[in-house]
């Protein structure tokens, strides 16, 4: 079984988001970048399934410029076998999906996994686009993934419940909790990751179909109105008469 795990390079979840003075770009200064937390579920589950089967490969794919390589090496340290970096800025979901679809087709991967969405762009788009480009099913967002031969059984989250879905390879799934407990690299993994193959390839396909014009931060709150704990019922009156939300 050949697994392709797509990872994106995102600001750490504790990052305070700021933009350049013209609000055109995210301000990367002093920001720690990590593997997108949702993608960690995809990566760890692929490694677990490969280990359980006793055979197969896990390839990590990132669309990004050279500054993403530390996190690609981290994915190799966690247990992926090799990596591919498409050397281009990930301008929009469509552009990224084109790169993934091209590599998935060329390498004849059986299972294409990624996180539910990236925590920076929050598109929740790439998995469906890749599935459509390859003409294969997409299961998104998947909370559980088991494989038996070429058949996968997945649990897909829906509003208020879940669906049990079964698909044959090849397929695309986007992953989220509680699929597995994401692994962290150990010392041996970090040592071996240095020599695992990391191939850099050029981008293909058409340009992006969307362009970010400007960023903005949410409006600041006016300040908190404190209510005495002894008189907590007063809060409910304020919510009805002042805030008018109940």
């Amino acid at each position: 079984m050949k697994f392709l795990v797509c990872i994106s390079n995102v600001p750490d979840t504790t990052t305070k988001i700021t933009f350049t003075p013209d609000n055109k770009e995210f301000n990367k200064a002093g920001v720690q970048f990590v593997i997108n937390p949702w993608d960690e579920y995809a990566l760890t589950r692929a490694i677990e399934l490969k280990e359980a089967a006793g055979s197969g490969t896990v390839t990590v794919l990132n669309v990004g410029e050279a500054d993403t390589e530390p996190n690609i090496r981290k994915a190799l340290a966690i247990g992926a076998d090799d990596a591919i970096r498409v050397n281009a800025a990930p301008t929009d979901a469509y552009f990224v999906a084109e790169q993934i679809a091209a590599i998935a087709k060329e390498g004849a991967y059986d299972v294409i996994l990624m996180g539910k969405e990236s925590i920076d762009y929050n598109g929740f788009q790439v998995h469906g686009m890749v599935g459509e480009m390859l003409g294969v099913p997409t299961v998104a967002p998947a909370m559980k993934l088991d494989m038996s031969g070429n058949t996968a059984t997945l649990e897909r989250e829906i509003e208020g419940g879940k669906e049990i879905v079964s698909v044959n390879t090849p397929f695309v799934a986007s992953c989220q909790q509680p699929m597995c407990e994401p692994r962290i690299p150990n010392m041996r993994g970090i040592m071996t990751a240095r020599t695992k193959p990391l191939k850099v390839v050029p981008a293909v396909g058409e340009p992006a179909r969307t362009q970010v014009q400007e960023y903005a931060l949410p409006p600041k709150k006016q300040g908190v109105k404190l209510i005495d704990a002894e008189n907590a019922g007063e809060l409910i009156k304020l919510l009805r008469n002042e805030a008018k939300v109940i």
Binding site: I17, R209, L217
Partner: peptide, 13 residues
């Protein structure tokens, strides 16, 4: 965008 930490104006071309 940024998981609720910001907004972006996006041109659909």
């Amino acid at each position: 965008a940024f998981s609720g930490k910001a907004f972006s104006d996006v041109v659909l071309s």
